[in-house]
């Protein structure tokens, strides 16, 4: 896939301390493995690179809309709600509707629970941008402060 970035997206990626090459790698890996979410118009792909999980949101023509990251390591899905909230995302690998679920999250040796978009069939989990850049980022900051 020919991955393309607007100037504003390049700037955003830089501000978030991410590398363009990593984002390209994530998209190419997702396209070759089909391990991604799709909502009919855009894709959400992710890859753990070093100490961070990096996400890319892009359309079928390779235009990158945004990229972001978190440091927590996502683990198993936890069974919580009996009636999970649906999302617009479909797990492409499983052709299964993804839902809002709960997953284990580990950071600095501490494992807790947190919300994520999950595929209940394959057990994979993704964090959406609003959570990664705000709530989860704040949680990582709190872990660092409380562990200090």
């Amino acid at each position: 896939m020919d991955v393309k970035f607007s100037d504003s997206v390049k700037e955003l990626i830089g501000e978030r301390g991410l590398k363009i090459d990593d984002v390209i790698d994530i998209i190419n890996t997702a396209e070759s493995s089909n391990r991604k979410l799709n909502d009919g118009s855009k894709n959400l792909a992710k890859k753990r690179i070093g100490e961070v999980t990096i996400y890319a949101v892009y359309d079928d023509n390779g235009n990158v809309e945004t990229a972001y990251s978190h440091r927590m390591v996502l683990g198993e899905i936890q069974k919580t709600t009996d009636e999970p909230d649906p999302t617009n995302w479909v797990c492409v690998s499983c052709n299964e509707k993804a839902v809002i679920g709960t997953v284990l999250m580990t950071y600095m040796g501490v494992t807790r629970s947190g919300p994520a978009v999950v595929c209940e069939k394959c057990g994979d989990a993704w964090i959406e941008e609003y959570l990664a850049t705000k709530t989860i980022a704040a949680a990582e900051g709190l872990f660092e402060k409380k562990k200090a």
Binding site: T80, I100, R112, T135, L142
Partner: peptide, 10 residues
């Protein structure tokens, strides 16, 4: 309450 949303600081 199993049906609530959980965060790492709940």
């Amino acid at each position: 309450f199993q049906n609530l949303i959980w965060s790492p600081f709940t």
